[in-house]
Write a protein that binds this DNA or RNA. Structure first.
Lengths: 255, 255
DNA sequence: GTGTGTGAATGTCTTCACAGCT
DNA sequence: AGCTGTGAAGACATTCACACAC
């Protein structure tokens, strides 16, 4: 299953921290915008503001890549764009397949940010025979039966799953068996994959739930300017259980 | 990533760790599935496997909510579903507006995972006059001109931005001025918001770039048959997943 | 003077391992 | 005997603050 791995030995000095990797695309976007406006150099302070992080973090992140700045001056925009692109592997072309061409799949297929970042939609795949041949975003949809051939013919190593939850694991298994080693999963399910396959997961529902948590907290705390927040946790007592400011009525929710 | 809140003051002593909050929806989904199969109790080990995390982490997470388990036995499924729902604020109804009804906005409007989790699409808003009145997912699209009125009339506090990048900040400003305090941003741009407004961001392009980074690394190091090679990843990230049992399609993406 | 690069300090998250309850 | 709940240890991430290069 997806979890795993009791042993991950010490990171060799070569590795870039995961948190840093996750921010590189952010910096890259900000730099690209500067590049388009022909801005030659930028300071950590300015770039950090554009990327929405603080400058100390940005400098620390860049320090893992190397010393690409000039003290007293800042960073050369074009040079940094290249270095980050290279580090992320975007100087090469990544063919990608999208499986599941429903509302979401179509939206993804139409997404313009692909080509500009080294990604190319190599194929669209759907299980519905009625979809086969229909062009979406200018690319004809192909049937799931041909999935393996499509992967192999195009040398695809990155797959995007936009199917309903029920189909996701099966699609995933076929993708992996055909040679895909990185998966971006939009289906609301936990995928299990063999070791060495990378899965990232995006789900609207989770994001909204996290927002709801903070939203609820705001509402509950606006009567506590001192920060004493609503009721301390109900340790021990499993009977009473209540803490929210507004006593909500029970009833476990439906699915 | 996602901004937990632009700058949370140091006064956070009673709170649930952000990392834990981000996993609660995951547990909730696994529990909901168990509930539907009428499973009465579950151990931390089993539930952890279903949610794709390890059991120590899960127990620690639950310990922040209270002592809801029974030693030697496990957790009562229904009870936990209720407790987590309440903690996340899902026992109440959250009206949500979606702004920008393009491919992505339509996909979001059609997303089934809303209602099942306490979210209700109160309105769809688009700047294109040609869209006005057209029903998407059974809900008529309204024009941007009426944004403020819609927000106020429906008591909306959560907004979803699915517009092109160029329009996002402006839409955001209007949402915030009208009273929205939580925003889920699908546009590939950094939004600036006043203190007290919570923004989370979902960006397809970033997810793909992170995958490309690891993919490149695998390719570069595949000469390590002894296992010294690249760490098995199976990422979880901060923008992740969830949802209900069958066939919902989540969505995401920038323009 | 200006702004980078980075050790050291601080804070957060995960994992371990076991005491304690059922 | 079994499984939770949690201090303590460890890994990881962020922030501080300043020496150093330009």
């Amino acid at each position: 299953m997806a979890t795993g791995r009791t042993h991950r030995p010490a990171t060799r000095s070569r590795g870039i921290p995961e948190a840093t990797v996750a921010r590189l695309p952010l910096y890259l976007r900000a730099l690209t915008a500067l590049s388009e406006r022909s801005v030659p150099t930028v300071s950590s302070e300015e770039l950090a503001a554009a990327a929405g992080v603080n400058s100390a973090k940005l400098r620390k992140d860049f320090s893992y890549l190397g010393s690409y700045g000039t003290r007293g001056v800042g960073y050369d925009v074009e040079y940094l764009v290249y270095q980050i692109s290279r580090e992320l592997g975007l100087t090469q072309d990544w063919p990608v397949v999208i499986v599941g061409i429903g509302n979401l799949g179509a939206a993804l297929a139409n997404y313009g940010g692909f080509a500009s970042r080294g990604f190319r939609v190599a194929a669209l795949i759907d299980a519905d025979p009625a979809m086969a041949g229909k062009p979406v975003a200018g690319i004809p949809v192909q049937h799931t039966d041909d999935l393996e051939k499509i992967i192999e013919d195009n040398g695809v190593s990155i797959g995007v799953i936009a199917t309903p939850a029920g189909a996701a694991q099966q699609v995933c298994d076929r993708l992996v068996a055909a040679g895909v080693t990185s998966i971006l999963n939009f289906a609301p399910t936990v995928l299990s994959v063999p070791d060495g396959v990378d899965v990232r997961k995006v789900d609207l529902s989770i994001e909204l739930q996290i927002l709801a948590f903070h939203e609820q907290r705001k509402a509950g705390e606006e009567a506590h300017p001192d920060g004493t927040g609503p009721a301390a946790v109900t340790r021990e007592s499993d009977a009473s259980a209540d803490q929210g400011p507004d006593g909500d009525v029970p009833a476990v929710m439906p699915a």
